[in-house]
Simulated assay, not measured.
Amino acid sequence: MKRFLVSLVCVSFFSLLLPSSGQAATPVTRHTVMWSIPEAKSIPVKINQLANRQMKRVYLHVAIEDDRTLYRTFVEAAHAAGIEVYFLFGQPRWITNEGTTFRPNVEDPLAWITLYQSETMQHPDGISVDLEPYALPEWTTNQSAVIASYQRILTAFQERATAEGLPLQLFLPFWFHTVTDVAGRPVSAWAMDLASEVTLMSYRTVYGGGNGLSAITLVDTLYAANHQHNLSYALEFTELPETPNITFYGQSRQALNQLVNQTMNSSFPPRAIVYHDFEAYQAFMQHTK
C-alpha cells in the first residue's frame, strides 16, 4: 500500500505538467544564444534576423579580449529593435582558479563588466553565466571542492550584477537537482534562489515519457513554482552525431512546434524557451517547413 501511495503522488505531480486537451497554447517568449559577436557591418543584418525570428532576448557571449565598441554597437541596435541583450560569460577554468580563500580569481570578467558600464550608456539588460563545472577534470576527483568554488564564482557574479543594477541569469544542466552542496542543498535550488532567472539545458525533442522534457524538468519546475522563481527551458538545434535524440537538427518543424505547444500548454509553462544557438536555429528554420 505504501508503494502504491508513493507512486500515486508521483503520477499526480507529473500530471500537473501535462498539457490540457483543447486548451490554447500560451504565447512563446523566445530567447536565443549567440556565441560570437558579428563584425560591425554585419550587426544590422544579424539584428534583423533576430527580429524576424521574434527573439525577445539574446544571450551574447563576451570574449573579454574583443573590442568593446562592438558590444556597444550591438546593444544599441538590438534595443532599437526591441530585443534585450544579456552579456554571457562562460569559462569553466574560472571555477577552480582561486585567487583567495574566500573568492575566486574572476577579476577579469567582473572588471570587464564594470569597465564596459562606465564607458557607455548602451548597457545590457542583464548578465548571464554558463560555466558547466562538470566539464572540469576535478569534477570526478574532488566534486565537493568544485561545487564550492562554483558557488563562490556565481555569488561574485551576482554581487557585481547587483552593483550594476542588472539581473543575473544562469544556465544549468537539467540534472543539477541531483547534486548537492556542502549544506546538502540541491545545486539547482541554490542557484534559483541566487539568480533572477535560471535556464535549464533541458535538450529534448519530445515532451512526454520518462526521458521527455516534462519528466526531466519536473523537480526544478515544481521548486520554481513553489518559490516564485523564473525558470526557462533550452532546446538544441546544433548537429550532435553522438546524441541525435536531444537535438532538433535533422527533424521537422512540426516536431518542434508540437514540443513547444505542449510545453507552453502545461500547468507550469516556462518563462521562455531558449533556442540554442541562433545560427543553428536559423539554419533549421531555413531548411524546414
Rank of each mutant, 00 (worst) to 15 (best):
M1P: 01
L5K: 10
V11K: 03
V11Q: 07
S12T: 13
F14C: 07
P19S: 10
S21G: 05
Q23V: 02
V28W: 02
T32C: 01
M34P: 12
A40M: 11
A40E: 15
I43T: 09
L50E: 13
M55K: 07
R57E: 06
R57A: 10
Y59K: 13
Y59V: 14
Y59H: 15
L70T: 00
L70H: 03
E76M: 02
A78R: 12
H79D: 07
A80L: 14
G82T: 09
I83M: 14
Q91D: 15
P92S: 02
I95K: 02
T96H: 02
N97V: 07
G99C: 00
F102L: 03
R103G: 02
P104W: 05
N105F: 06
E107D: 07
D108G: 05
W112L: 04
Q117K: 06
S118A: 07
E119Y: 10
I127T: 09
D130N: 01
L131F: 01
N142W: 12
N142D: 15
S144Y: 04
V146E: 13
F157V: 06
E159F: 04
R160T: 09
L168A: 14
F171H: 09
L172W: 00
L172H: 04
G184T: 11
S188K: 05
A189K: 05
M192P: 07
L194G: 01
M201R: 14
S202Q: 13
V206D: 03
Y207F: 05
Y207A: 04
S214F: 03
I216M: 12
V219P: 10
T221K: 08
A224Q: 13
A225Y: 14
A225M: 09
H227G: 14
H227L: 14
L231C: 01
F237D: 05
T238C: 07
P241T: 11
P241A: 09
E242H: 03
P244Y: 00
N245M: 02
F248D: 00
F248I: 06
R253N: 09
Q254M: 08
A255L: 06
L259G: 04
N265A: 11
F268P: 08
P269I: 12
P270A: 07
A272Y: 09
Y275R: 11
H276R: 11
E279I: 14
Y281I: 10
Q286M: 13
